[in-house]
Design a protein around this nucleic acid. Structure first.
Length: 292
DNA sequence: ATCCAGGATGTAT
DNA sequence: ATACATCATGGA
């Protein structure tokens, strides 16, 4: 295993690993101590987290102002990408509209960054998220990898890579239902097939604008406007994407009623025109504010 | 037991 | 375009 470190004070706007990884934006990292984590702020701050990326394993923890990593590869570039360490949070929040609740959330959760997940795992994990609790979404991803992914033997420990599209496309609906996926099982199998066959051309979608990408991924069964926004944001990096879930819907009704335009698209557009091109950061911070 | 979970879909207006 | 019931499963 290689190792290295990144100085957190050098990152513009700081960084907080726990709030970033334990805030239900990504279900693809695990905490090393107990595997599945409960909720934000449930534990002290210096636990190891790890993810399996392709055939590689990457561990990371934050301690004493340093982001330490251990991995089968030189992980610095991967961490910059997956944790968006190049985002200048101060500049982003300067560019967002002045808003007292947002200011408060920015103070409260300083260092929370939007994540970047690989496309296919992001799609699958968010299809799983429909009407499912965060803890269980997490557990399901682990089960998917253990059941359909490749085993990786690394230093006496067996890890499992997240299944590739063809691996989930080959899974039967009943095998998927056995993991407790319920009505999501056929969505996952069919979506995996559409991506494996190229019916959804992922590389083309990476080149599209936010609006076009948001529309395009909704051809996938189980992907509607909300999950399409999660994919646009967390896998394609469109910081103007505003996923409106039940919590965000409540938040808007309560504190930003002028943005409540009925339909999903109109409401998301109103939120965007209120907060600007980095609206996702406003949504993410406000979301964690109401959920805490 | 009854309700709910980072929604999506089919069907009826 | 908008409103509604329905979709499995596990945990509280």
């Amino acid at each position: 295993m290689k190792s290295g470190s990144i100085s957190v004070p050098d990152l513009a706007g700081g960084f907080d690993l726990q709030s970033t990884l334990e805030s239900a934006q990504t279900f693809l990292w695990q905490r090393a101590d107990d595997g599945i984590y409960e909720s934000t702020n449930a534990y002290g701050g210096d636990a190891w987290y790890y993810t399996v990326a392709g055939d590689d394993v990457v561990y990371v923890r934050q301690r004493n102002g340093v982001l330490e990593w251990q991995a089968t590869i030189d992980a610095e570039q991967l961490l910059y990408r997956r944790l968006r360490l190049d985002d200048d949070l101060d500049a982003i929040f300067d560019a967002l509209a002045d808003d007292s609740m947002l200011e408060q959330a920015y103070q409260e959760y300083s260092g929370l960054r939007i994540v970047h997940d690989p496309f296919f795992p992001c799609v699958i994990s968010f299809i799983c998220s429909a009407r499912m609790r965060v803890k269980r979404i997490h557990a399901i991803q682990i089960e998917l990898a253990r059941t359909f992914g490749d085993p990786l033997r690394i230093e006496e420990t067996t890890y499992y890579s997240f299944p590739r599209p063809e691996q989930l496309a080959a899974a039967s609906e009943s095998n998927l239902r056995n993991l407790g996926l319920g009505f999501r099982a056929p969505y996952i199998q069919e979506t995996a097939e559409m991506i494996a066959t190229g019916e959804l051309p992922v590389d083309d979608i990476r080149e599209k604008s936010y609006e076009d990408a948001h529309e395009a991924v909704q051809v996938l069964p189980g992907v509607g406007p909300k999950i399409a926004d999660c994919v646009a944001l967390f896998a394609l990096g469109h910081l103007r994407a505003v996923p409106i879930d039940t919590w965000t819907r409540q938040l808007i009704k309560l504190y930003y009623p002028m943005c409540d335009q009925g339909s999903y698209e109109a409401t998301a557009d109103a939120f965007r025109s209120m907060f600007g091109k980095y609206a996702s950061y406003a949504q993410t911070y406000l979301y964690h504010n109401v959920r805490s």
